[in-house]
Amino acid sequence: MTVTLERPGPTPRTGPPAVEVKGVSKVFGRGDDAVVALDGVDLSVAPGEFVCLLGASGCGKSTLLNVVAGLDQPTTGTVDRSSSRPAVMFQESALLPWLTAGRNVELPLRLAGVGRGARRERARELLELVRLDGQAEKRPHELSGGMRQRVALARALAAATGLGGSGATEVQPGVLLMDEPFGALDAITRDFLQAELLRVWEATGTTILFVTHDVRESVRLAERVVLLSSRPGRVVREWGTGVDTDPEELHGDITTELREVISAHGR
């Protein structure tokens, strides 16, 4: 099954960037053992934009994501976020196994002190958005891997958007950081979840920064693909995926460049 999504070119976006990374470096260890994971990375993501960070293993893309998430502090440089706290989704769903799907989605709202009724209603909405209506009472072990990742997506949306645009407050679309979230799934489930993610992104207007090592995935999902080099991680090049670009050609281009980056390490 192939689902082709026709998207218009990057729509001009206004307002300050949702995420702005300036000159971020990250060094692990000290002295001779020091490993430079990131070296002077600049990256700006507009509100509502879908950006893929692409790179071979060890390129520090997860490190960059952790720095943007605030889970890790950069050695030098700054990270500015417009939204208060970006939500993170990992390769494993990381659902709490003793809570039902609904309670898992409620958890970020509970941590934020939202009342029971409001957060239950919001969890129901979000589960419906990821097509899991009626599954709120199931426990994670009663769900398939793909369904668990969709619960995790609903939970991340709850974390990123809070109660959504209820009442007079303006909708806060939030920022979603995804660290190879579909990496552990089989091909057909991954394909389905990619389509679902695009649908949810279009429905919510959330900003997404998506880490992957899969060129095809990045070309399919992102509006902009950013290639990182390995050790130290630097931004090598970026590509836009507008209407005029041919996905196959773009896939070829990016793969060539990625091979180039990887071969440089063998020399």
Binding site: A69, L71, R85, A87, V88, F90, E92, A94, L96, L107, P108, L111, A112, A159
Partner: peptide, 11 residues
């Protein structure tokens, strides 16, 4: 991963 998720959600 569980405490990390909690941390990421601002616990």
């Amino acid at each position: 991963l569980l405490p990390r998720v909690g941390h990421a959600m601002g616990a």
